[in-house]
Structures are given as C-alpha cells and as structure tokens.
C-alpha cells in the first residue's frame, strides 16, 4: 500500500473511531470532526514531528482551535497511544480525559486547551512566537473553523503572526462553509477569504481538504518570514453521504439504519 492509500485508510479508521465514541457518548460533533479527518491524518501520520512523544519540548505542536471537533483528535491520541485505550468509551463522561472540548490539563497529547472559539489561533500564535524566541525549529499547526473566524480575536492574532514574521506557524482553515446557524456566507459572510488572509500578511494556499496528497505537500511548504494559511475546502460530514453538507449533522447523532450505513460507507462494520 502506498503512502496516500495508507493515509486514506487511516482517515476512515479515525472517522469510525470517532463515530464509535460519539455514539457511546450520545453527543458530540460529527460533522466538523469528519471535515478535518483528512487534514488531521496528514498532520499526525505524515507531516508533524512528534517522534519524541507528546511531552518532547522539541516536538511540533497542534492546536485544534475549533475545539468542538475534538472527537477526531481523541481518536488520533488513542491510536498513537498517548492516551490509554480504556479512555475510548469515556467521551464527555465525568472524570474523563476526553472532555466535551479539549482540556490539556486532563488529556495527554492536547497541546492547547480550546473550546471558546478564536482562542486557539491566538494561543497558537503565541506558541510559535515563543518557540522562535527559544531558538527551536518546531512548527505550530492550528486548525480553525471558517465560522470561527467571526471572532475578532482571530484577526488580532493574524495581524500579530504577520507582524512577528512567524514562518513556523501554519493556520489551516476548515472551509466547510457551514456553521451552527447555517451557511457561512448567509450568516456572516467571509467573502474572499484568500484575499483577506493575504491582506493580513499570510502566504495563502487553497486546497481540496480531502485530497490527502495535496494536503501533505502543502503542509510541508514554508514561506520565509511569513506565516502560512491553508484554506482547505472541505465537506462537513465528509465520508458519510447523508451527512455531507447538511448542517443538521453539526451536532446530530445517527440512529438505527443511519448507523449501519455510516460504518458501511466508511468501509467498516459497526464496532462501537
């Protein structure tokens, strides 16, 4: 199996693990988890240097600024062995490392507590600045939602990232065009996002956020003295046909036949 096929298979396995956890919990965000599944797979299984483990000071860092998509990140942490396997069935339960939104103080491998939108972009920018001050080569990857960009703090951070020439910072915008209340361009339009990010001083690449080959090659790009933004065009709920592009799967939970169909489309059987 070549690298691309191996990564594709891994992404679908992570989607199924995510589904297992959300079905067990009875709540959680499937749509946003599935839209970033291929991006997070590329980061954790291809691009990021985390060979020294989740506490290595020289590792690359990952910030899930759209913290509600954390089930897919938890699936990665389980698969990597950063979190004990028996945590899998505890999503959103009392005392679990898998809180409803990521909390680094209880979950190994979470590089940044998020959950309040916009903050991960700012903290990730501070991490990139700090790593530079420390003279480290580590990179910081932030995955943000497009709806999240409604928050003014994101733009404060973008200004700073460019001002401080943080070429070790990559912001990946999950451009699935949907937020809780509907279509991003109807609710609070972002308009020409590429032009906006370029005007804030970023080098911007637009990619298909499900083309795992181009995700990897674009993540590897570095632009001297310039922060990098990847606008990843994605499909909310990607991988399960009836969920795709349907805002009701932002936080919806499949039932009955829907469950079997979801696993089938992801290439597996129900193992939740």
């Amino acid at each position: 199996m070549n690298t691309i096929d191996r990564l594709k298979k891994k992404a679908d396995q992570l989607r199924m693990d995510t589904l297992d956890m959300i079905l067990e919990a009875g709540s959680g965000h499937i749509g946003g988890s599935f839209s970033i599944a291929d991006i997070i797979t590329s980061l954790y299984y291809d691009v990021m240097d985390i060979t020294g483990g989740p506490h290595d000071e020289d590792r690359d860092r990952f910030v899930l600024s759209k913290g509600h998509a954390n089930p897919i990140l938890y699936a990665v942490l389980l698969d990597k062995g950063f979190v004990p396997k028996d945590a899998k069935g505890t999503l959103r339960q009392f005392g679990s490392p898998f809180q409803g939104h990521p909390d680094s103080s209880v979950c190994p491998g979470i590089d940044c507590t998020t959950g309040s939108l916009g903050q991960g972009i700012s903290v990730g920018t501070g991490m990139a600045l700090g790593l530079k001050k420390l003279g480290k080569d580590s990179r910081v990857f932030v995955v943000a939602g497009d709806g999240e960009l409604n928050e003014g703090l994101c733009w404060e951070a973008f200004m700073a990232a460019s001002n401080f020439q943080l070429d070790n910072l990559t912001i990946i915008i999950d451009r699935n065009m949907l937020q809780l209340g509907g279509h991003t361009e109807d609710l609070m339009k972002l308009g020409d996002l590429k032009a906006k990010m370029e005007s804030f001083g970023f080098a911007v690449d637009e990619i298909d956020g499900h083309d795992i080959g181009s995700i990897g090659s674009t993540l590897r790009k570095k632009y001297p003295d310039t922060p990098h933004c990847i606008i990843a065009k994605t499909i909310k709920g990607k991988g399960v046909s009836y969920m795709e592009n349907n805002p009701s799967w932002h936080g919806g939970i499949p039932k009955g036949e829907e469950v079997a169909q979801a696993y089938k489309e992801l290439g597996g059987t129900c193992h939740g």
């Binding site: 000071e57 860092r61 590089d111 940044c112 916009g118 903050q119 972009i121 700012s122 903290v123 990730g124 920018t125 501070g126 991490m127 990139a128 600045l129 700090g130 790593l131 001050k133 420390l134 480290k136 003014g152 703090l153 404060e156 951070a157 200004m159 700073a160 001002n163 401080f164």
Partner: peptide, 22 residues
C-alpha cells in the same frame, strides 16, 4: 513583546508563550 492595542490577543499570546515554557 508588544501586541498592539489588542488585550484579547495579549492574553492569548501570553498563554502560548507559557505553553512552550516561558
């Protein structure tokens, strides 16, 4: 580090600096 007139980012950037050990 002067983040400009941006108190939200002031705190966020500081959290990031602390997260990498400063």
């Amino acid at each position: 580090i002067d983040v400009g007139i941006a108190e939200q980012n002031l705190v966020g950037i500081s959290a990031g600096l602390a997260r990498v050990g400063l």
